[in-house]
């Protein structure tokens, strides 16, 4: 009988700890978690150094207190903003306000840009119609057309959400179109020789094949909406994390500005991690082997 098991599956994992085949699987998992990788240690050390420098800079007044508030004052401002609120809302409420705008804008973009992008990838005529429109407004800075939006849609959340929607649309649409084009034609051929019709090819081959690049587009879109958020909250807002930063600037509250910026940064990071996790769940075949 022929030996068919001489071919080993591919494995790749980078653990520092050398463990041999005899160690039980659960033991190996525990060891991997308990001993952090060198990279994680370096990141932690860098953060601590930055924090330390910040503290020293303000303690010894290397920079004026107005330019860089001390870590302690920033902390105090954060606590106050959460407990007593900033201009009528707690920090959390401001953040929720901004998140509502971002999620709504992103959500709207997802359900419109992705299907359109997929269609554009599949049908060149549809691409010919929409491509020039998207490519034209994509490089425009949002602030440029934001005042128009406020003029047309008013000062409420509608114009702000619309701005975020417009910002998120191009990366999602373009990545969807690229994703479709990027699906290996051999896979499509294989599916057809297995009896799949056009719709089945789209559902079972094109769609799953597009997922990885779609998620890349999503991560970009999240980043873009985040950076546009502050612009969106510049006109006629009275809440939101971006608005806090702008408002505090008028009163030279650099401690509040720092709180706003740090919260924005951390939230952006979290959102990105969330998308990555979603990507892992939706495309399990990419993280194995």
């Amino acid at each position: 009988m022929m030996d068919m098991s001489n071919t080993e599956p591919l494995h790749s994992s980078a653990t520092i700890v050398k463990v041999d085949q005899d160690t039980s699987r659960s033991a190996r998992v525990i060891i991997r978690l308990a001993r952090p990788s060198t990279e994680r240690l370096i990141t932690a050390a860098t953060l601590l150094i930055i924090l330390g420098l910040w503290y020293l800079a303000t303690h010894y007044q290397w920079v004026p207190g107005l330019f860089v508030p001390s870590p302690l004052s920033v902390w105090r401002a954060l606590v106050e903003m959460q407990q007593t609120g900033y201009q009528g809302h707690t920090l959390f409420e401001h953040l929720a306000s901004s998140m509502y705008r971002i999620v709504t804008g992103l959500g709207m973009a997802l359900v419109t840009a992705v299907p359109l992008g997929l269609l554009m990838g599949v049908n060149s005529k549809i691409r010919a119609i929409f491509d020039p429109l998207i490519e034209f407004y994509r490089p425009l800075p949002p602030l440029a057309y934001y005042t128009l939006l406020v003029l047309w849609l008013g000062i409420d959340n509608t114009s702000k959400i619309m701005l975020l929607f417009l910002a998120a649309f191009p990366p999602l649409c373009v990545s969807a179109a690229q994703a479709v084009k990027g699906v290996d034609p051999v896979l499509i051929r294989a599916a057809r020789t297995l009896g799949a019709n056009a719709i089945q090819v789209f559902l079972y081959i094109v769609l799953p094949g597009s997922l990885p690049e779609l998620f890349t587009g999503l991560r970009i879109a999240v980043g873009v909406t985040f950076s546009v958020l502050v612009a969106a909250e510049m006109v006629a807002a009275s809440s939101g994390i971006g608005w806090i930063v702008l408002d505090a600037g008028k009163f030279l509250r650099s401690d509040v500005i720092f709180v706003g910026i740090i919260v924005m940064g951390l939230t952006g990071l979290l959102l990105d991690k969330l998308v990555r996790k979603l990507e892992q769940l939706a495309t399990p075949w990419r993280s194995c082997g």
């Binding site: 051999v186 051929r189 294989a190 057809r192 020789t193 997922l211 075949w285």
Partner: peptide, 17 residues
Amino acid sequence: PGADRGMVFQQYSLFPW
């Protein structure tokens, strides 16, 4: 193309997902 003619390709043609 159709299921009456099965095909095996030289390149990687299994559906990765």
